[in-house]
Amino acid sequence: MSSLVKCPHCGLRPREEFTIRGEVAAPRPSAGADEATWFDHVYLRDNPRGEHREYWHHAGGCRRWLVLSRNTLTHETSDVVDASTLKTEGAR
């Protein structure tokens, strides 16, 4: 993985400052959603070989949650944005 990652708030920062949380999944289903929807949300993953949108936490810096694309084969990162700018489509 590249040793420097571009944080939208702090600029280029060492990779060690960040914690990777995992894929940016669809929003959490509503409490009343059926079992199949919940199963899908909790257990199934796209797990792509290639571009992967994921949550990163800049724990050693601005402490903001970020969303970025990482290529799971080459580890190149791109399109870093603050997670608050992500459009949420609301609960299913």
């Binding site: 199934l44 797990n47 792509p48 799971t72």
Partner: peptide, 18 residues
């Protein structure tokens, strides 16, 4: 290791991360 990648060929999603 590549289960999700191959399963994708038949549109299967798996409870697996690589």
């Amino acid at each position: 290791g590549s289960s999700s990648h191959v399963a994708k060929m038949v549109d299967m999603r798996l409870p697996i991360e690589s």
